[in-house]
Amino acid sequence: MSYGRSVEVVETAENVRRITITVNGERRVVEVEPRLLLAHLMREGLGLTGTHFGCDTTNCGACTVLFDGEPIKSCTMLAVQADGHEVTSVEGLGTHSELDPVQEGFQAEHGLQCGFCTPGMMMASKALLNRNASPTEEDVRWALSGNLCRCTGYQNIVKAVLWAADKQRLSGPAAAGDTSSEEHVS
């Protein structure tokens, strides 16, 4: 798969790699040019357009996904490097019928306006909550310090993450810090 086209139309197949990655719980086998960025594979190859490009220099965080559970900037990783790894994107948060507390929190606390940075913000937030079920405001601000938002001024984003933390704690230990549920969405 080169930039979302099938391998047949790639001008040369000399340099194409077959990789296997688990995306949002689903095993995917794709063929990629080595220079294809993971974020482009997500968007163009796999049709997961919730992962956004907001800069060229690894600053904005709009492309944040979880890579084996850790938040990374998918614009700064080659797709070929994801071979054999697990990637969770915004499309892997929650289920068809139930939102993840982070998603609920962002809506409940008006943590988004244009929505462009939101997927990255939510993935960075999810990574924080996976590791720290009871973050302070300072913890949240620190965890989001690699994600830029131009609309909200962050105050409501911080509230959204704290809201999600509360919700997750209240809904019992099974929910807190358990990432397995979200990774088995079909």
């Binding site: 600053n59 965080g61 944040t64 938040p71 900037k73 700064t76 960075a124 989001l144 310090s145 690699g146």
Partner: peptide
Amino acid sequence: ADPMVRSR
């Protein structure tokens, strides 16, 4: 850098 860069 930032948290995501530090992840990698």
